[in-house]
Design a protein around this nucleic acid. Sequence first.
RNA 1: GCGGGCGUAGCCAAGCGGUUAAGGCAGCGGCUUGUGGCGCCGCCACUCGGGGGUUCGAAUCCCCUCGCUCGCCCCA
Length: 420
Amino acid sequence: MEPLQSLRGMVDLLPERLGLWQRVEATAREHFRRAAIAEIRTPLLEATELFARGIGEGTDVVGKEMYTFFDRGERSCTLRPEGTASVVRAAIQQRLLAQGPQRLWYGGPMFRYERPQAGRQRQFHQIGVELLGAADPLSDGEAIAIAWDLLADLGVAGLELELNSLGTLDDRVRYRAELVAWLEAHRQQLDPDSQQRITSNPLRVLDSKHPDTQALLAGAPDLQDALCPESHERFRLVRRALEDLGIPFRLNPRLVRGLDYYGHTAFEISSSQLGAQATVCGGGRYDGLVEQLGGPATPAVGWALGMERLVLLLSEAGGDPAAVVPDLYVISRGEAAERQALTLARRVRRAGLIAERDGSGAAFGKQFKRADRSGARWAAVIGESEAAEGVAVLKDLRGEASDDGRRLPFEGLLAVLAQG
RNA sequence: GCGGGCGUAGCCAAGCGGUUAAGGCAGCGGCUUGUGGCGCCGCCACUCGGGGGUUCGAAUCCCCUCGCUCGCCCCA
């Protein structure tokens, strides 16, 4: 019988790895609590149209990376490729915005049909923040600061924050026309991918990784020059906020996010230690999205961070937190003894301590070996005679091989454990 | 979707056309029927991701396929 395998790009998270995940999640929760950001959970599956309308038909994510299928009712459904569209849809549908601005965070799996590589999977996990109704430029700084402080608190070193302003929709329309004209004029000198993007998504040509294209782009029209005075002023205030907060950043006029809903502030936090998929956290302002999805005009800013990439950085930096070590390892053999062992384990647990019971039925020697491996300080042994007397032999596993076993009733044993 | 590299036991691996496919860790059994950590002894791949081919002979060469991996692309 051939064993079944997980689908390509779908990864199992094993206990040894999850210690680190849980640390990240707990830290994130705490940071969000302090920032008065509430959790929201939305379905993994949404109507395809939500993402098509929200993220943009012309984007790669929508164009070729979605897990889309028809359900039994012939509705087109899509496994969410990102979190923002769903959160905005929920806020609109549940009338949350009628109660005022919403500060929300979410976490969980996202799905994109891509070729897996380091830091990129088909099912991956994000934690994200959405500040709906956050109008002022300082909110951009606040959102970034929340991400920055979380990463710093987790102990991630060597991160770089890159910042850009995409201006208003009008700015971009104007700039796009300028850029397309320029690109057309230099079409012959562009790499094939970039040539294709002149029509599909011209702004994305800007952050092409092709060296020749990059060199050529030095002479291209600059998005910053196309920004209206209000956009400039807005961007100035965002930069000022970051300066006030002491968060270092680098301006990157080529930074263009791949999702259509971004405008004004766009940012990425990346690490040079991650290889090709270097972005740990990305986000920006999306003032038009709520309205575009049928809600009240609502300015908003947010970001998402990639759990796998973050965990990758943390495990390279330090390693996982230790596995759970039981306080007591309970060894038993024989039916009466096993029943007593279960009773004892439960009593220890109800007292707030960690008890692991060996249910293997193996020889005592074998069970002792496992008791040692578990790292437990104490082992309790229950055999036929102990079971008959209602006692257990308590052994200090850190002691020498001498016979230090004490026969104790369960209450006495608990008392010893309680003392450490 | 396009390129490069790699698949030998649960894990780490040696072998790179010719006898029984090294070794280590883990596991199992024993020395030591109910007492661990150390040590010693023994066992643990009819078979080298799968399929086909070349050859007297294939883990070793070729083709296909699946998977992993690193890039491109894209993004978290």
